[in-house]
């Protein structure tokens, strides 16, 4: 997997109060980058900026050397669909659907052929120790299982960029370890991984660390 090179220069997102102010950041492929800081300092906002959800009020963001300022919503969405895997703190699964269906939906948006989707989803879930719950409705999963399904959804398409927002925040030690190990292995495979966390131990294990303190 070819990771995405991100470069944020003077990044500012103006809300009241400003969520990000004049932030410079480099995220390199094949590395894990931890972002830490107190609540409300703009860590999640940074993820949404890098995931091209939010547009900068000032500054510039380049993706693989391309300034994204002029990108249309279509292009940004396409980038998210094919290159970005989001991992949320509380999984954010579609609770009405099965674990496999949650993963295949991401694959569908990524343009993975229909016939390959289920096998990819199953193999990804199996890698994360979830082979037994693939057809269970997400609503019936435990917190740890749901988070791993969320991770599977993010990594199944082989994204170039993984943006993880407190991915281990609600997990027990074992589940947290599985999740973090998967993120590290994704980075080892070339993916750019950005992890927002309050856990400084995790941050220490990352290749790079940006502290908003």
């Amino acid at each position: 997997m070819t990771g995405v090179q991100l470069s944020l220069t003077g990044g500012t997102v103006a809300y009241r109060p400003p969520l990000l102010t004049n932030l410079d950041l480099e995220c390199r492929p094949a590395a894990t980058t931890a972002v830490t800081g107190p609540s409300g300092c703009g860590k999640s906002t940074l993820l949404y900026v890098l995931g091209l959800f939010l547009r900068l009020s000032a500054g510039s963001l380049t993706v693989n050397g391309q300034d994204v300022k002029g990108w249309s919503d279509q292009r940004r969405s396409r980038f998210r669909a094919t290159q970005v895997g989001f991992v949320f703190q509380d999984a954010r699964l579609d609770r009405r659907r099965s674990a496999v269906a949650n993963v295949t939906e991401a694959l569908e948006y990524a343009g993975v052929p229909w016939r390959d989707q289920k096998s990819i989803a199953h193999s990804t879930l199996e890698r994360l120790g979830l082979n037994a719950i693939g057809d269970d409705r997400s609503a019936h999963l435990s917190g740890g299982e749901a988070q791993r399904v969320g991770l599977a959804r993010a990594v199944a398409k082989g994204p170039g960029l993984i943006l993880a927002d407190e991915p281990t925040g609600n997990l027990d030690e074992r589940s947290a370890s599985v999740v973090f190990d998967e993120l590290v292995s994704q980075a080892a495979a070339g993916t750019t991984v950005l992890i927002v966390t309050h856990d400084r131990d995790i941050a220490r294990e990352c290749d790079d660390w940006i502290d908003f303190e």
Partner: peptide
């Protein structure tokens, strides 16, 4: 609305 937000994170554009 939560699922539509989720779809956006997965790559659904506004028009889609």
């Amino acid at each position: 609305r939560e699922y539509f937000g989720l779809k956006r994170s997965l790559g659904a554009s506004r028009s889609r």
